[in-house]
Amino acid sequence: MSTLNVLNKSPFEKKTMEQCLARLADGDSVLMIEDAVVAALADTAIASQLESVGAAHALYVLEPDLAARGLSSSSRLAAVKVVDYSGFVELATTHERVHSWL
């Protein structure tokens, strides 16, 4: 009965990501879109925290939003998988519900 949690805010600006991660249930996944994609980069201040979340949960980042911000070829956390919009749609179908953390 897993949830796709969608994040759209940078963790360097808002606490939304940390607030979401603190409430994940077993089997939940996280998709980063819009400004949240910056969290998928390697070597950030929150990289180790996200890597440990990634050990228990599937993490995804939306490629067109990375590309728009010049981050497509930047090194990313190993735990994060890249998806395009069709991948986003697919994730919405393979999870029972979608929860956007606004």
Binding site: A22, R23, L24, A25, D26, R97, V98, H99, S100, L102
Partner: peptide, 17 residues
């Protein structure tokens, strides 16, 4: 806090405001 995820996963629709 540790039970919030399970509460949400018991639902069909999430409306977030």
């Amino acid at each position: 806090r540790k039970d919030v995820g399970a509460l949400i996963n018991d639902q069909d629709v999430v409306l977030s405001f």
